[in-house]
Simulated scan of single mutants.
Amino acid sequence: MELRTTFLFIVLITLMTACGNQKIVNSIKLVQTVGYDAVENGVRNAALIANYEEGKSKLEFFVTESNTIYDSSPRLRTKLDFPNEYGQVRMTLFGETYARKGIKIVTDTMMRHPVISSRMHLGVADRDALEILNVTENKRDPYFLFDMIENNIRNGNLPMTNLHVTVFNFYGEGRDVFLPYFTVERGEIKIDGLALFKGDQFKTKISIRDAFLLKMLLGNSKNGSVMVPVKGPKQERGDYFLMNSIGSKSRLKVISVGPPASVSIQLKVDASVRDVPEWMDLTSEDQLASLEKRMEDYFENEIQNLISFCKRNNVDPVGFGDLIRSRSYQWEARDFEDHYEALKTTVSVKVIIVQTGAGQ
């Protein structure tokens, strides 16, 4: 009896597998990067598609316009000789004008799409997305922007971000969205910082240096770097040295729920330094301690400046509102926004130089 049951089970599994919806890669069009721009009569949608033929991939570029994004896929289909599939979409880029009007429709649509990964990246261009994607097309790589973001999250100054993080920040109370901000410099695409949102609308941007500060506040800033100013005892003009973060830990603590609220920020950074001025001797314990103190003062001041900038622009990428909400039973989003600019923060940074380079 058990043998018959096992045999029947195997047969059913085989039949179910055979009836699966199989799709051959050279018989479909895999949309891999998309862009959205605001135009006079609605939205312009650009799509980068890898066309696989005879073991080779060819990059194709298609542009459609419609009154709404819901019509983008059907309009794209009218230009294709095979079905268009979205299971390999890894990047969505918004033109600045479109992002200022709101990205909620696009992000919600993508989160509901059963085959689109929540690890997909999103970004904002300082111009039309179409212009950035035209440069991307010349790279012959449909994942070029996606790989840029991944590289700068792992090895650079970008904090963790993807579709899942973006939707969490958008729908989470007391948090605001941030996305990589792209520009073109001398014909090359460049990540120029972070776009900061209020709700689903692009509000302002911060530099790639400030993106590193935000990365430290949000968690581990491993591999981020920044140029730190330093001045010698007899110098009129200052020098700079390169500081690399080996790792960091941040602790945000609510001192008072207010209003106005008060938050204490404690940051510990393990760092390496490179390219220090010639007058600096890192074999000297006194100069090493002085350099650590200089970095501590620098980061405390710069983090306060970043927080002040965010408060002036009424954006909260750090998630102070969410932090305070977790400590208050009477927290209201409107009340927090009304008193956000009066938020008090104290910043304490401890820097430990653990590497100074082989040359030192």
Rank of each mutant, 00 (worst) to 15 (best):
M1R: 13
L8W: 06
I13L: 12
L15Y: 02
M16W: 02
Q22F: 07
Q22C: 00
V25W: 01
N26C: 01
V31C: 11
Y36V: 07
L48N: 02
Y52E: 08
E60T: 07
F62M: 12
V63H: 01
S66P: 00
T68A: 10
Y70V: 10
R75E: 11
L76D: 06
L80A: 14
P83A: 08
R90C: 07
F94S: 01
G95S: 07
I103F: 00
V106L: 01
T107K: 05
M111F: 07
S118L: 10
A125S: 15
R127I: 04
A129V: 04
E131G: 00
I132G: 01
N134I: 09
N134W: 02
M148P: 03
R154T: 13
G156W: 04
N162D: 11
H164N: 14
N169E: 11
N169Y: 03
Y181M: 11
F182A: 04
V184A: 08
E185P: 00
F197A: 04
I208P: 07
L217V: 06
G219K: 04
G219N: 06
N220M: 06
V226Y: 00
G232M: 11
K234Y: 14
G238P: 03
M243D: 04
K249M: 03
L252T: 02
I255V: 15
S256K: 14
S264H: 13
S272D: 10
R274I: 03
D275P: 07
E278R: 12
E278T: 05
D281F: 03
D286H: 08
Q287M: 15
K293T: 15
M295A: 10
D297M: 07
Q304W: 00
D316C: 06
G319S: 09
G319D: 08
L323G: 08
W331P: 11
D335V: 12
E337W: 07
K350W: 08
V351A: 03
G357D: 02
